[in-house]
Simulated assay, not measured.
Amino acid sequence: MITARDWEDARVLWDFQRMGHEPRACSVGVGLGSHDLGVADVTAELYRRGLVPLVVFTGATSPTTRARMPRGEAVHYRERAVELGVPEDAILVEPRARNTGENIRFSRDLLAERGTPVDSVLLVSKPYEERRAYATARKLWPAAEFVCASAPLDLPAYAESVGDPRLVLDMLVGAVQRLLLYPARGFMIELPVPLPVTTAYERLRERGFVGRLVAIPAPGTS
């Protein structure tokens, strides 16, 4: 059962993850693979608005997406974007990435191999992973400037669209945990996490929203 207190805490994490960037013209749009086809919808809309001349969709599959996206996240995103009017020759597919770091690195390398100059990226993710995606991209692609974008939904509307509120809360908790742990592991830059966010995060962990946490190495191990 998800209580009113749980929803209040989840909203704190949700609001924190949103970067509040205003979409603007960039060299390329990169849609990060996930279970959420809404990422493809937002990326397609940004293309139709003329904000990017080229789109990269990146992502293989995961336990969460294998059944619903059997051809791979990036491939399903591409198919969706084409349905929404994005020309096929304006889309690149990066089909190997299995985590956010690989999404960024493999997209960066693909564009470099094509000789595509990139100084700015419209980075499209799920709403509750904007800040995590931004911190990862800043670490792994320091030569580029990043503008974050996601579906303009509030938490209740997004949870309803996904159809699995507990999954959304698990993901919110997991995204904050990575912001706390991953800078020390070299996976992302360090961003301040305010006390109200860490307090809400700890309460949700104690309530059992731990389905997307990563293991913490024991002291003395890597």
Rank of each mutant, 00 (worst) to 15 (best):
T100S: 12
T100R: 09
G101M: 12
G101S: 13
G101A: 15
N103V: 14
N103M: 14
N103I: 15
N103W: 14
N103Y: 09
N103L: 13
I104L: 10
I104D: 04
I104M: 14
I104H: 05
R105G: 13
R105W: 07
R105M: 15
R105Q: 12
F106V: 12
F106S: 06
F106L: 14
F106Y: 15
F106R: 13
F106E: 12
F106D: 11
F106A: 12
S107R: 02
S107V: 10
R108D: 00
R108H: 09
R108F: 04
D109M: 00
D109N: 10
D109T: 10
D109E: 14
L110F: 11
L110K: 05
L110C: 08
L110E: 12
L110G: 07
L111F: 09
L111P: 07
A112G: 05
A112F: 01
A112D: 06
E113T: 12
E113P: 08
R114P: 10
R114C: 05
G115E: 12
G115D: 12
G115N: 13
G115A: 14
T116N: 00
T116M: 00
P117S: 12
P117L: 06
P117Q: 06
P117Y: 14
V118L: 04
V118K: 01
V118F: 04
D119G: 05
D119R: 13
D119F: 05
D119Y: 00
D119A: 08
S120P: 04
S120C: 01
S120V: 02
V121Q: 07
V121E: 05
V121G: 06
V121L: 07
L122I: 08
L122Y: 06
L122W: 07
L122H: 08
L122S: 11
L122Q: 06
L123S: 11
L123N: 12
L123V: 09
L123K: 10
L123M: 11
V124T: 10
V124E: 08
V124I: 14
S125Q: 13
S125F: 06
S125V: 05
S125M: 04
K126F: 05
K126W: 10
K126V: 07
K126N: 09
P127T: 02
P127V: 01
P127K: 02
P127M: 03
P127E: 04
Y128Q: 10
Y128E: 05
E129C: 00
E129Q: 11
E129L: 02
E129T: 03
E130I: 03
E130N: 01
E130H: 03
E130A: 03
R131M: 04
R131T: 02
R131S: 01
R131E: 01
R132I: 07
R132K: 10
R132F: 07
R132S: 07
A133Q: 04
A133E: 07
A133T: 08
A133K: 05
Y134G: 03
Y134P: 05
Y134T: 05
A135H: 03
A135P: 08
A135G: 01
A135Q: 04
A135F: 02
A135L: 01
A135W: 02
A135Y: 01
